[in-house]
Write a protein that binds this DNA or RNA. Structure first.
Lengths: 380, 380
DNA sequence: ATGGATTTGTTTATTGGTTGAATTATTTGG
DNA sequence: CCAAATAATTCAACCAATAAACAAATCCAT
C-alpha cells in the first residue's frame, strides 16, 4: 500500500547515498568540502570520500581549488557540479516558434536556438521534422563543447498522455500525435509546457518546495509542485485550471461548458475586455475582471491543496502589479485559512524560455536524482 | 530537492524490507507462505525467513496451519497478521456523540463504545474529559483481550494544525483547542474527520490508490488520497471543498464569501431546498440543485488533480442514486479529459463509523508502515 | 623555525544485512 | 519405499557503511 513495493538491497543504499551527496553539493551555493558534505548528510567522512570518488570518476563532480581561509587545519578541497559532464537537451514547440537549448549540470544555458514561425498552418509531422533539425544542430554544438547529452525533453502546449503521445494541443491543432523517434534513439520525453515551466521556476531557486505555477497564454495551464516534485495526476493531466468554473451562467467556452476561467482570464478574453489588440497594451488596461476570476480559481486550488505560494507566469508575469489587488481580494474572501497563513503571489522569474529551460532541467534533474543510473550507463 | 535528505544505512534497509514483507502479508487475502512472499517481494527466501522471524517475535505476524493442498512438496506454513499484537485506539468527537473503538492489526473492530449527546452546549474541556473516560474504558477492555494499544488517533470535524491543535471546529464551537495529554502519556494524534474517513475507505479495499472522499455533513469536507497516502497539504488543511465557489453571485456563506458549495449541498441547504426537516426525508426529494453544485466542485477537483474516483460519504452515501445523474452531467460537461477516462462515482462503504475506524486504522497503518519502530519499542 | 593544535581526507578492521548454494524437512506419486 | 517436488533453514561470501587510527596540510604561539 503505502510503502513502495520494491526490495532494497545494499546497492540501493549506495544509489541513494550517491544521490544524497550529489544533491548536497548541487544545492550548496559555494563549493563545499567532503567534510562539510559529510556533516550535512549525516554520513561519515570516509563514506562521503568513497562516494565522491565515484561521482568525480563519472564526470558529475569536479574538484576546485580550496578557497583561502584563515583558520587552522588542512585546507578543504572544494566540490562542485561538473560543467563538462552530462547535459540536458530542452525542446519546445509552441504557437509561434520552435526552440532548442542545451543546459549543463550546473544549470547554465550553453546553447540556445530559436526558429520563429507560426506552427498552426503546418502539420505535426512537418513541425516535428523542423524541430528534429534544430535539435540535431544543438546536439552537434553540445558535442563540440565536450558535453554528453543525457537525454531530451519536449514541451508542448497541450495534454500529454503517460506514454508521451500528445492527446490534444488545441492551439497547435494537434490531435493524438506520437512524437516518435526524433533523434535516432536518444530518448525524448514529452510534457506539458506549464508542468515544465513550473519545474524551471523551482530550479531558479528561492521558492518553497510546494507551489502552483499558473501559466497564462492563449490557454491557461497550471503546474503543481508538491514537495519539490511535479504532481502529474493519476493519468498525467493534472493542472487544467483553465476550465475551472467561475460562473455557471457565464459565457460559453470552446470546451463545451460555460463560464470557464479561460473566458475571463485567457489572453483573448483579456484583449477583448480591454478593447486592445496586443498583449503589450494590456499593461494600461483595467484587468479587474480577469483578476477576480483568477482569484476565484486560485482560491479553489488553495482550498483544495493548501498551497501557500502561487507563481504567475506567461502573460500574467508582467501584468501582476495590475492583477494583484483583485486576485488578493478574492483569495482573502474565499480561502478559509487565509487568516492564519498568507498566500503569496509572485511573478515568474524566467521569461518565455521557462518551458524549454524546464525541459532541459528535467533531464538534468533525472541525472541528479539517480546518479547511479548515469554511472552505470554504457560508456561511449 | 527531490531526494529525501536522510542518509541510508544498513539498518534502514532492514526497516524497509520488514515493512515490505509485512505489507505483502497484510495485503494477501489468504495466508501466504514465506516462499510466496519472497517471490512477491523480490527478496530471497533466506532473507524473508529472517525477516519473518523478527516479525513473529514482535507479535506482528503469526503462523497458521498450512492449507491442505494436493501437490507434491513440503506444505507451506501460512502467515497472517497477528490478531493479538498491536491495536489501534480510534476516537471521535462529533456534533451529537463521542465514540471510541479498538481495532486490531487485521482490521477487525474489537470494541466499540458510543456515547450519544449533543456536544455543542458543553465546552471543549468537558467534552474531552468525557472522551478521556470513554477511551480509558476502551483501553481497559483491549488490555483484557491481551492487546497492546500502539497509539490513538482522534477525529474531529474541523481544521487541525500540524501540531494537533484544533484551529477551528465550527459545528462544535471549538476554537484553538489543544487536545493535550488525554491518556497519561499514550500519544494521541488529531486529524480531520474527512481525512480519516478517507483512509478508512481506502482500508476497506477495492479502491484505486488515488481517490477523493467527499464527506457531506453539516459542513462538507474532502479527504484526498494520492497513491495510497493521505495528502494533507503544506500546513495540514487541504480538502476544504465546502467553500469552493459555485456561483460568485450566489447566497452568502457563513465563511464570509458568496456562493460556496456548502450553500447548495450542505445538509442545511439541502433540507431547506427540499422543504423537509430530516435527512431521511431527502431520499424522496429533488436534489438536482445540490447534485449540480457537487458536480461543479468535483469537476474542479478532477481538473486540478486528475483523479478518477470520487467516493461520496456522510449523508451523500445513501442519496447517491438520486444525486448521480446531476453530478455526472456536470462532470461530463466540465472535465476536459472525461472523454478519454471516465470518472467513477461511488458511495462510501462504511457508515457513520468511518472516521472513528479511520482513526484506529491510522494507528494500525503507522505500525504496518514502520514495523521496525514497533519492534524497537520499549517492552512493557 | 619549530612544535602543537586543528582540520581534512584516507586507510583498515569491523559490523550489519542480503545473497546464493547447499542442506534439511515434509509432502505426493509411482 | 524411493524419487520428485516444494518449503524452510544454515552458512560462507560479499557489499556498503562505520569507527578509529593515520597521514596531510595548514595556522599559531613560543
Amino acid at each position: 500500500m503505502t510503502a513502495s513495493r520494491a526490495p532494497v538491497r545494499q546497492s540501493s543504499v549506495r544509489a541513494h547515498n550517491l544521490a544524497l551527496v550529489l544533491q548536497i553539493v548541487a544545492n550548496s551555493p559555494d563549493p563545499i568540502s567532503r567534510a562539510a558534505t559529510a556533516a550535512a548528510s549525516g554520513l561519515t567522512r570516509a563514506t562521503v570520500s568513497a562516494l565522491v570518488d565515484d561521482l568525480i570518476a563519472g564526470t558529475l563532480l569536479t574538484e576546485v581549488e580550496p578557497a583561502p581561509r584563515n583558520r587552522a587545519g588542512r585546507p578543504a578541497a572544494g566540490l562542485r557540479l561538473a560543467p563538462d559532464g552530462p547535459a540536458g537537451l530542452g525542446l519546445e514547440i509552441n504557437v509561434d516558434y520552435r526552440a532548442a537549448c542545451v543546459v549543463d549540470l550546473t544549470g547554465r544555458v550553453r546553447h540556445r536556438l530559436l526558429e520563429p514561425g507560426d506552427q498552426r498552418p503546418v502539420d505535426a509531422a512537418t513541425a516535428l521534422a523542423g524541430l528534429s533539425r534544430l535539435a540535431r544542430e544543438a546536439l552537434r554544438r553540445a558535442e563540440a563543447d565536450g558535453l554528453t547529452v543525457a537525454g531530451a525533453a519536449l514541451a508542448v502546449p497541450g495534454l500529454v498522455a503517460a506514454d508521451g503521445t500528445v492527446r490534444i494541443a488545441p492551439n497547435l491543432g494537434w490531435h493524438d500525435v506520437a512524437v516518435g523517434d526524433l533523434l535516432d534513439g536518444l530518448p525524448v520525453t514529452v510534457d506539458n509546457e506549464a508542468n515544465l515551466a513550473a519545474l524551471s521556476e523551482l530550479g531558479a531557486g528561492d521558492l518553497p518546495p510546494s507551489f502552483v505555477y499558473v501559466s497564462g497564454e492563449i490557454g491557461i495551464g497550471a503546474g503543481i509542485v508538491l514537495d519539490g516534485t511535479l504532481f502529474r495526476g493519476v493519468r498525467g493531466w493534472s493542472g487544467e485550471i483553465g476550465h475551472l468554473a467561475i460562473d455557471p451562467a457565464g459565457p460559453p467556452c470552446r470546451c463545451g461548458a460555460q463560464g470557464c476561467l479561460e473566458q475571463y482570464a485567457g489572453q483573448e478574453a483579456m484583449l477583448r475586455a480591454a478593447g486592445v489588440a496586443t498583449v503589450a497594451e494590456l499593461a494600461g488596461a483595467d484587468l479587474s475582471v480577469a483578476g477576480q476570476a483568477l482569484g476565484t480559481a486560485i482560491s479553489a486550488v488553495v482550498n483544495l491543496l493548501d498551497i501557500g505560494t502561487v507563481v504567475l507566469g506567461g502573460i500574467y508575469a508582467p501584468l501582476l502589479p495590475r492583477l494583484r489587488e483583485a486576485i488578493g481580494a478574492e483569495v482573502d474572501r474565499r480561502v478559509l485559512t487565509a487568516d492564519w497563513s498568507a498566500i503569496e503571489l509572485r511573478a515568474a522569474r524566467l521569461g518565455p524560455d521557462a518551458a524549454m529551460r524546464g525541459a532541459a532541467g528535467a533531464v538534468i534533474r533525472s541525472v541528479l536524482d539517480d546518479p547511479a543510473g548515469w554511472l552505470a550507463r554504457d560508456r561511449p
